[in-house]
């Protein structure tokens, strides 16, 4: 199975690889995994408390090229978005953008789950303050 050019591009030049401090109250961390293939994906967002906009995003994924590309793309997309806008990103958008074949759709699902988990984590940290 051949990877699309966009997958290869993200795989070779992943955007926003790295990590943000888990302890930072403005950072939300999502850690998700796909038991079928054994991939693990960590996606973190840094949210501006005033504006509610995602200022920064980082990821680190141990998995196949499609999982890396999906999470790389997800960090690109969430940056500059509000939490609500980030939550509106659907795995099907990722599938379309990266031209993922059917057997790799679960990678995009994982990326969507990672965004949701990161937002949930951030919200949990801010439950008391809001």
């Amino acid at each position: 199975m051949a990877y699309s050019d966009k997958v290869i591009d993200h795989y070779n030049n992943p955007r926003n690889v790295g990590s943000l401090s888990k302890e930072d109250p403005n950072v939300g961390t999502g850690l998700v995994g796909a038991p079928e293939c054994g991939d693990v994906m960590k996606l973190q967002i840094k949210v501006n408390e005033e504006s509610g906009v995602i200022e920064d995003a980082k990821f680190k994924t141990f998995g196949c090229g499609s999982a890396i590309a999906s999470s790389s793309l997800a960090t690109e997309w969430v940056k500059g978005k509000t939490l609500a806008e980030a939550l509106a990103i659907k795995n099907t958008d990722i599938v379309k953008e990266l031209s993922l074949p059917p057997v790799k759709i679960h990678c995009s699902v994982l990326a969507e789950d990672a965004i949701k988990a990161a937002v949930t984590d951030w919200k949990k940290k801010h439950e008391n303050g809001e």
Binding site: L31, V32, G33, A34, P35, E36, G38, V40, K42, K60, F62, H106, V109, L110, D113
Partner: peptide, 20 residues
Amino acid sequence: KPDSSKVPQALLMEVFEINE
């Protein structure tokens, strides 16, 4: 079948760390 929503966080954290 294996369900990704049921993978324990502790396992993911451990696997992530070992991978690093």
